[in-house]
Simulated scan of single mutants.
Amino acid sequence: MKKAPLYSRSRPRAGLSPAVTDAPLAAAEPAKPSLRSPRWRTLRLFLARHPRPQAALAAVLLLVLGGVAEHTLLPAPAALNQKDVDAAVRRSLEGEPLPSPYARAAAVIRPSVVRVIGLADDTDTSKASDDPKAHTRSTGTGVVIIDNGTILTNLHVVIGSKRIKVTFFDGHESEALMIGAQPENDLAVLRAKSIPDDLAAATMRGTGDLLPGDQVVAVGFPFGIGPSVSGGVVSGLRRQFRSPDGERLSNLIQFDAAANPGNSGGPLVTMDGSVVGIVTAILNPGDQGTFIGIGFAVPIENAAAAVGLPPF
């Protein structure tokens, strides 16, 4: 029995022979997306309704291309090593040197340092007191410890004086009264009758962590000259000293920063400008009373007790 021939169900196109029509269909190529397809029309409509995303997309694309170009065209910076860092620091310091630790400490304490003069009578001796040779015994230094004009100094600077005059860092002068004393530590507490604006009180620091070899600065008015700054180190702790009049002082800080008559009552400060002691004496076997490298200061704990401040 003969089988019926199989034909394509599509109609033959005009101009094509039946042979072409009946030939097996070639494998269809994948369809390419047309700009008229629904997907492209939707995208075009979205971009037309939302122009800002186009600008943002263009900006992001430009940034990305710029970063790629920079990374490609510019050479990468060389890695810094310790030698480069040291050289840069050296150049910076040579161009603008930093102040010394002594200078920084002195700058901190300077607004709190005062000149103290004990006057034996009511005569105006302001001119004579500027002479380094005048009033050697009664010329000393003090340090403001409370910004209401409360000042610490040595008792031997003001004892026996009928009048006490203090001169602050800005040149302001005032009479002062002694409101307290601690003879066993050669300390006196003064209160100025008038004070300059924005008077700064010194920062006090306990001596519990003070060690021999620590750097210190003494600021004062040696022989009335000053304020003068001298630097050194702590030479020892818990020292004893007997003054020429027989007074015995104990628990003293020994230091080698230069101190002379007139430094008495001034602050001994650490490198951060904090007061750790009140300069009170120098050791000198001779009769000249000048510095030979050994000075003593009362620890600030004792000095604070003289004022009634709580212990550190």
Rank of each mutant, 00 (worst) to 15 (best):
K3N: 13
A4Y: 10
S8Y: 15
R13F: 06
L16K: 14
P18K: 09
P18L: 11
P24E: 11
A31I: 12
S34D: 13
R36H: 14
F46V: 13
H50A: 00
R52Y: 12
A55N: 08
L57F: 13
A58W: 12
V60C: 10
V64S: 08
G67S: 11
A69K: 09
A87S: 09
V89R: 09
R91V: 13
L93Y: 10
A105Y: 02
R110P: 00
I117A: 02
D121S: 12
S126L: 07
K127V: 06
K133W: 05
T141G: 01
G142H: 02
V144N: 00
L155G: 03
H156N: 05
F169T: 04
D170E: 09
G171A: 05
H172Y: 08
I179W: 06
L187G: 01
A202R: 01
T203L: 06
G206K: 00
G208T: 13
P212V: 03
V219F: 01
F221Q: 02
F223L: 09
S235A: 14
R238E: 07
R248F: 06
R248E: 10
L249S: 07
D256T: 02
S264C: 12
M271N: 15
I278D: 02
V279H: 05
T280N: 05
N284M: 07
P285V: 05
D287H: 05
F296W: 02
V298W: 00
E301P: 03
A305M: 04
V307Q: 06
